[in-house]
Amino acid sequence: MDRIKYKHIVDKYKSDENKIINLVISFLIGGLVGAISVGLTDLYSYILDIPSKDATTFMIVTLIIISCLFTALGFFDKWVTFAKCGLIIPITGFAHSMMSSSLEFKKEGFIYGIGSNMFKLAGSVIVYGVVSASLFGTIRYVFFGG
């Protein structure tokens, strides 16, 4: 029997994941995170009387601190397993990926453990974030005058 025939049998027993339900959960939770963020931004700009651009930075820092704290306390992974991309795509996922990698390699020490493994998952996001930002920044500068 060749690979195609075998693959045919394998395909018969594929994962019975319900994509629609996953999608709805991610959409709702992702949306909730977004709503909380807007609420936080408005709150900061109202309480501290600062422009909304500065309040946004405050909001991002708050989300990062909260998700790092929840990861360290050991229950954010269960939330991620449930909400999937709803929590992975926002800044919460980025912070969580760095925090979980740091926790994982804590025992190997500060240099060979935390330092060299912290960006294990987040590294690609940073690299390609910077690359695409430079690319589109250049395009904007050349064609639209900055």
Partner: peptide, 12 residues
Amino acid sequence: NPTEYGSPRPST
């Protein structure tokens, strides 16, 4: 992935 990451896994 890191264990605390809680990466979602399919049923297979």
